[in-house]
């Protein structure tokens, strides 16, 4: 088996065990409120890993990815709601879209497809820029899409948003897509694209001198991550049954980036660990916030957590390593200790 396939399978399998266990336990005994937390956790994995597949490999942070999540979510909303509802609410739709609806899987795939297409077009311009300028230009992307979602009445229902989306994302569907996202992002990271990008992340001049077309590689990563983001948005819409422009703007960008950075931007495992840690912190503090009555406490706690983690561990909890590398090191250290003890 090739290195790529072996690492992808191992890296996915290590997370598959606990995630599957969580899904089964939640399915058996979780209250509706806890179930929401679990399903949104799985969907967040898809979203955070989508951002990781671009930012982690290129070293360029993106504030604009929620635009592609929004695209996926609106696409899924428009193609799944009952045609009767569309006639009243979404008058701007072309007739073939107004008269038909599709099921869960086609909606998810369409979300990913359109997310990828939109990202691909924007990426032509964005990936030509220097690293810092591109990061800031992604902010512009987020604002452009917010304005469009907020005002395109006939298609998005503007500020009101679209409600009445069938709730089709089950905990197991979310689990499957989370695992697919882990596998896809790990495979990309280990592929010739990911390898070259990680080289360019550390030294773009050296990477170009070796023959890497850094602009094109970044475009590939950007488009792929836009597609995965679209998938995540489609899953999200079909679980939370209503979409509106505010859900794809800055306030929602912050927790996703927090997850990525706290866990460790550079690796897929960092993304997974970050989603887990921040989800728990969010839930614990949110429950306290209701008791204590300080508005915004959750955001304050997460912000402080980010500042502390970045100060102590600039590469996040995982410190730039994949979980299988950590395990291999631990095994190596134990072997050394045992050998040392037997002498």
């Amino acid at each position: 088996m090739s290195t790529l396939a072996r690492r992808t399978l191992l890296g996915t399998a290590i997370f598959a065990v606990p995630l599957t266990a969580i899904a089964f336990v939640a399915n058996a005994m979780a209250s509706p409120a806890d179930m929401r937390v679990v399903v949104n956790f799985m969907i967040s994995l898809v979203l955070v890993l989508a951002i990781q597949s671009f930012s982690g490999n290129t070293g360029i942070i993106s504030f604009g990815h929620l635009a592609f999540m929004g695209v996926g979510a609106y696409v899924a909303a428009i193609v799944t709601i009952d045609p009767v509802l569309k006639q009243d609410d979404l008058a701007g739709l072309p007739s073939f879209m107004a008269e038909h609806s599709v099921g869960f899987i086609p909606a998810v795939l369409l979300g990913g497809l359109v997310g990828g297409l939109v990202a691909g077009v924007l990426g032509v311009v964005l990936t030509r820029m220097r690293e810092g300028a591109m990061a800031m230009a992604t902010i512009g992307v987020l604002v452009i899409f917010f304005v469009v979602f907020d005002n395109w009445e006939g298609i998005t229902r503007g500020n009101t948003g679209i409600a009445g989306i069938p709730q089709s994302t089950t905990v197991f569907a979310a689990l499957v897509f989370a695992l697919l996202a882990i596998a896809a992002c790990r495979a990309f990271c280990e592929s010739r694209f990911g390898l070259q990008l990680r080289g360019s992340r550390s030294d773009p001049v050296a990477a170009e001198a070796l023959g890497s077309n850094v602009v094109r590689l970044r475009w590939v990563a950007w488009t792929l991550s836009g597609a995965i983001m679209g998938v995540g948005g489609a899953l999200w819409a079909q679980y939370n049954i209503a979409v509106g422009p505010q859900q794809f703007f800055f306030e929602q960008t912050f927790p996703l980036l927090a997850m990525l950075v706290v866990g460790g931007l550079a690796t897929v495992s960092g993304g997974v660990v970050g989603v887990f840690v921040i989800t728990i912190v969010f839930e614990v503090v949110r429950r306290m916030e209701d008791d204590i009555g300080i508005p915004g406490l959750t955001q304050i706690v997460v912000a402080v957590l980010i500042l502390v983690v970045l100060n102590r561990r600039p590469n996040g909890i995982m410190g730039g390593l994949e979980v299988d590398q950590v395990l291999a090191r631990l095994r190596g250290r134990r072997r050394v200790e045992q050998e040392g003890g037997s002498q």
């Binding site: 942070i61 690293e131 990061a135 912050f254 950075v261 304050i300 912000a303 970045l310």
Partner: peptide, 14 residues
Amino acid sequence: FITLLISSFALSVL
């Protein structure tokens, strides 16, 4: 660059 950027983002939220 990213560490600084995200830190300032967190500070802004704070």
